[in-house]
Design a protein around this nucleic acid. Structure first.
Lengths: 241, 241
DNA sequence: AGTCTATAGTGGTATAGACCAGGTATGACC
DNA sequence: GGTCATACCTGGTCTATACCACTATAGACT
């Protein structure tokens, strides 16, 4: 397994993946010291700056850590890819559950001031409203109400969102890729409508979530309000300093 | 406002802060194009590689975004610093609330297998247990039970954690800095003990949180189980792809 | 034995130069 | 007017080299 200078894949990416493979295969263990940057540079015939580009990426990802004057070391654990910014469908797919939806509402409305503020658009601008009951293996899990700026995704409601994934359509049809999100979660008791839709017997606890999702350019794609069944949903987050 | 080559502050940090100041002062607006890398390099008398180091940091932080062949642009919004990885005391301080605690339990125990697994230490290894009722402006907000590997922080319980911040002591006395954490949040109904401590009248919703916190080397510092009053606590998270 | 001191190695910072692929504008040509 | 080619600009990748501050070690000196 070596580095190919003629490959279209950048050298620093090749080195990065080579190192990750070595760690996964157990050739490098947690807290093992890597060869020095100068040594890696010589061994693979690439410049030290290019080696550093690979190493710094891995440090940023938490795979390696450095100690100036000492060396570069393998971290204690390898994190999985971050799954934080996926939609409901992708999350269920990852858990091997069958995701489906029942459309409760799908219309275009002029933005109420509160929603316009969240979406950072002028008041009364066109907003796509999509309210769905979310099911995992045919059992209700959540009520999700999404608001999207109409100008970013005209004709969005042509799609059948009882089957299709909103995030998949946004990505494939409109080139809108979520890059970051601010999420607020709180616990509450289910109200009558929520209890009925989620098939809960009051009193029952639910998770209320709000989320504002943005593109790499930090333009708001969507504002979502969700209500999850407390007993069927846990919310994972991976935080970094 | 210029760049000082004799300063002990690295040039790329100086340039980064200079650009952030320009954006904050409104001299650069969202989606404005920055001068090209070659132009910045010439204007401030530093090499292009150093300019790139500053720009790439800002791209990673979401302040700028690049388009190959076009240029580098200012993002739509500037995010605040990430507050995700702070303890209860720091969070309350930021909200201008007075944080205090009532110690419910503070001992060293041999690790139960479940806790040992979370802390990634051998079963029956020494574990510091710290269970506190957390108050904001003298009102109960949460019950927090923290488990820490004793070998990382011997004599931790010498401190008075009804006043001191656990995170502050870990940082200042033991050099343990949280770098990442995995958090799980769910909603539930308060049980009798929780309702009594949190001064709730059943039925009441609470947020249950588990958290595993790690150092930059990915060594586990602590495992925490918390129960928050649903009506007095919201959980914020900033997610990135 | 204990302490100081070169010395060599490490990651961190910085320079100057080069080539590439993709975007943009200009102007020649039909 | 529309289309195409070209020249130029951009960020992305990569090399070779240099100096700094910090760390460990081996040897000289007390």
């Amino acid at each position: 397994m070596d580095i190919n200078a003629k490959s279209p894949i950048p050298l620093y990416i090749q080195l990065k993946e080579l190192l990750v493979r070595q760690i996964r295969r157990g050739e490098l263990h947690p807290h093992d010291r890597l060869p020095s940057e100068r040594e890696l540079s010589e061994r693979y015939g690439i410049s030290r700056m290019t080696v550093r580009q690979a190493l710094q990426l891995l440090v940023k990802e938490g795979v390696l850590y450095t100690a100036a004057g000492k060396g570069t070391y393998v971290s204690e654990v390898l994190f999985e890819q971050d799954h934080a910014l996926t939609g409901f469908s992708e999350q269920m797919q990852r858990a091997n559950l069958h995701a489906s939806s029942r459309i409760l509402e799908a219309t275009v409305i002029p933005a109420p001031p509160y929603i316009a503020g969240k979406l950072e658009i002028p008041a009364h601008g066109g907003v796509v409203l999509l309210k769905r009951l979310r099911l995992a293996n045919e059992k209700p899990v959540a009520i999700e109400t999404a608001y999207l700026p109409q100008n970013l995704c005209p004709d969005l409601l042509q799609h059948d969102f009882s089957r299709e994934s909103l995030y998949a359509v946004l990505r494939e049809e409109y080139g809108l890729v979520p890059a970051s999100a601010i999420q607020v979660v709180e616990a509450a008791l289910a109200n009558v409508e929520e209890a009925q839709l989620l098939e809960l017997h009051p009193p029952a606890a639910v998770l209320r979530m709000e989320r504002v999702t943005r593109t790499p350019q930090n333009v708001v794609i969507e504002y979502v309000e969700s209500v999850y069944r407390g007993d069927r949903y846990k919310f994972y987050a991976h935080l970094r300093a």
